[in-house]
Design a protein around this nucleic acid. Structure first.
Lengths: 160, 160
DNA sequence: CAGTTAGTTCGGAAATAAACAAACCAAAAG
DNA sequence: CTTTTGGTTTGTTTATTTCCGAACTAACTG
């Protein structure tokens, strides 16, 4: 398998992964995948257009979505009106991911607490029955959060 | 706020949460939310139908989806043709969730390794640049997995 | 066996999401 | 000032998802 083939295949695979992982529309996921694995330092609007065989408007929407989600950023070159898009920054890829998981865990905890509050008031016996399990689960979430926070710190300290 | 109001509001809120958290269709998410917070020991098909103001066919589809995803189970009462649906089991709710996260992390690792393999062959310099970050991220994922595995064990040992 | 109960299945309608084409705009170049 | 470049915006089309109604089935009931 040559490089171009390997690349295309990996983009498709990564694209599918990103769709579910980050709830991205298919085209945005593919564009992001392309930016993740490209060896170039930044791809232009046109690059994205031709590489994904998509329409201008769809590429525009997708790139703006990715920008707004902080998945990508762009830079310019003086004397060149094009924008060059690249993934937000080498760490952001991981940090963003870690933060996303953290946020989900926070939300999950919040929902569990709401259910708990409801049960304390309206279903005391049910609350008693689940107390121990909730405790284990919550500890697990807290431990995970600690690990993630540390990893984010570590990543930040790896700046080159 | 009375109990019924508090309950309805919580069901809606939990429902919205489950939609994104577990990628469930709206109706299935609401039915599951209802089963999570109900004080009854199991709700019938009809209960789900009337409480959600949905059609028979939609309730049927939703309940079967939830069954197939192992989110819920049912039991029967002798001399009663109805099925009583309830959440899969008190631990399964958490264990299932933890396992789902574990699976996602595994998949994530797998994708990262694929990108890494591609870079080793086709983009050695890029690979070198990201080596340290990948290492931190991977350690983080492994640590998380360990915590989750332990929590699952702990939950299993809490059987009443 | 005729009806009722507790659902399932199938075909389609309604809602939502994703992508597109075409018209548009602002900055730079000729 | 006209044209080209690098996009954006708007309105539509297409695809997919979600839900529903109506017809069906299998088990029980009288």
């Amino acid at each position: 398998m040559n490089k171009e083939e390997a690349k295309q295949q990996l983009i498709e695979e990564l694209g599918v992964h990103f769709e579910s992982e980050y709830s991205l529309p298919p085209l945005a996921a593919r564009i992001f995948a392309n930016l993740v694995i490209t060896e170039e330092d930044g791809l232009t609007f046109e690059d994205c257009l031709t590489k994904q065989c998509a329409s201008k408007s769809s590429v525009s929407t997708s790139l703006n979505l990715l920008l707004q989600m902080d998945f990508i950023k762009y830079f310019t070159k003086s004397g060149d009106r094009k924008r060059y898009f690249k993934i937000a920054n080498k760490d952001a890829f991981f940090i963003g991911k870690l933060n996303a998981v953290l946020k989900k865990l926070e939300k999950e905890l919040e929902m569990i607490k709401k259910v708990e509050s409801y049960n304390i008031v309206h279903n005391p016996q049910k609350h008693e029955a689940n107390k121990e399990k909730k405790k284990i689960y919550m500890k697990c979430v807290e431990d995970t959060k600690a690990i993630y926070r540390k990893a984010i710190e570590d990543l930040k300290n790896t700046q080159e």
